[in-house]
Nucleic acid binder design. Structure first.
Lengths: 238, 238
DNA sequence: TGAACTCACTGAACTAGACCAAAGGATGGC
DNA sequence: GCCATCCTTTGGTCTAGTTCAGTGAGTTCA
């Protein structure tokens, strides 16, 4: 029964059409909120609502105070596979990069201690890294290693795969991993690194890895931009 | 440097506090947006923004034109396990219910045909069901079965586990399953059943099941309220 | 050449209202 | 006791602005 023009809906349809039709390409910037509000004669609040709903659908994303952009296709990610980030991304004809953000060594704070099933008096290394696909920051990773398993690891090149490093330098293979996938809000430090607004929706993956002696050796917290990834698992691969 | 009172932030803190502190219990209704906007002397837009950010964090949820409610704890769900919905929920000391929404029989439309790897001239049954935890609708499921594998299935009781039915009546066991997890927006028919606004964030799980003869027998599309679930997988269980 | 500065443009966050449509309780007729 | 109708309350959607803070390109100056 709606015979109003419903410009906000029209704006969504136009953008959807331009994205699927290829007039707007992945990573391309959309017009500014102010321009869109003039173009379609609607307020900026309506523009923001409409853009937010396209964002939820995974069609567009925003960068803090920079603007809105068209989302590239999702990468398929199997958290159970041995394949690491660079290999996985490359196999899907995309370009991967890793940037080291921070390393710190500390006594395990309670939430890490709990995940690693150890006491708070154990020393851990926390490695924070940012991962890019096709030049876009899509994943913030916190790796938390139990120090005594990995002497001198902090002097290694930590932009490569940690799994490979575990194997070649420390002779540890991952015999078992356990992980949780949770739709959540971005914590402040993650939001800053990914250049999104704090509290925005992200996909959180918490993983715990066991070595060949069934010892927990490290855990990992991954924070993905929700439009960048799709978890894909096949029971036959184990 | 912010020395403004920042009432929207204060509202979030108060609600967060009341939820974690137990003054607001799971499934309990929050004051209306208008009441909150009076209480904290902020506009309804700011109230909505603040509530939306608590929603993203998984603390509260809303029902269409009914109001905002406190989210119960997430259930842990392992899509690889043989355990079915009722069993999984019961094991976590929660109450499960299933409601049959609709059954239809048709020639496979293209997106189903693609997922099931068959031609569009194959007949399929589509079973739509709504699942509840502790009385709250949290999951909309579409099961799509290849008809010739399941003669007369539509006259069975379809609020029980389909996996069990496959086994007892048709002698099919699931030998392999493959699934994708995607943060997405709720399609209109799903939004209606779950009583959420169309386009709102949900967690979509697409699963394909193979029988003991390595034939694809059905696929399933699950749409979860994102605050209700957490995917939890352990590689050792296979 | 290169580092520091300026400034226009961007979204972020907010105020102060408006009307609409669905939900659901209260009411009243039978 | 039951059912239809009314009415209040709810969120949904929208208009029309404002102020603030980070971004980044261009400019200036040592």
């Amino acid at each position: 029964m709606k015979n109003k023009t419903d410009m906000p809906l029209k704006m969504k349809d136009v953008l959807r059409e331009q994205i699927s039709g290829g007039s707007l390409l992945p990573l391309q910037k959309l017009p500014s909120e102010r321009d869109l509000s003039d173009l379609f004669s609607i307020t900026r609040i309506s523009v923001k609502d409409a853009l937010a709903s396209l964002e939820t659908a995974g069609l567009i994303y925003k960068e803090n105070r920079r603007g809105w952009f068209v989302s590239p296709p999702r990468v398929e990610y199997n958290p159970l596979s041995r394949s690491h980030f660079h290999q996985m991304v490359t196999e899907q004809q995309r370009i991967a990069e890793t940037q080291l953000i921070n390393i710190s060594t500390m006594m395990a704070p309670s939430h890490y201690a709990k995940t690693l099933a150890l006491t708070e008096l154990t020393e851990i290394h926390v490695i924070e890294r940012l991962r890019f696909i096709d030049g876009r920051a899509v994943l913030f990773v916190e790796n938390c290693l139990i120090s005594h398993f990995f002497p001198n690891i902090i002097s290694e090149n930590l932009t490569q795969s940690l799994t490979t490093l575990y194997q070649t330098k420390y002779n540890f293979t991952t015999s078992r991993s356990r992980f949780d996938v949770i739709p959540a809000a971005a914590p402040a430090h993650v939001a800053k690194a990914l250049n999104i607004s704090p509290g925005q929706q992200i996909l959180k993956i918490c993983r715990v890895n066991y070595n060949q002696h069934a010892q927990i050796i490290d855990c990992e917290f991954e924070y993905w931009r929700p439009d960048a990834v799709m978890i894909s698992i096949d029971s036959i691969e184990h």
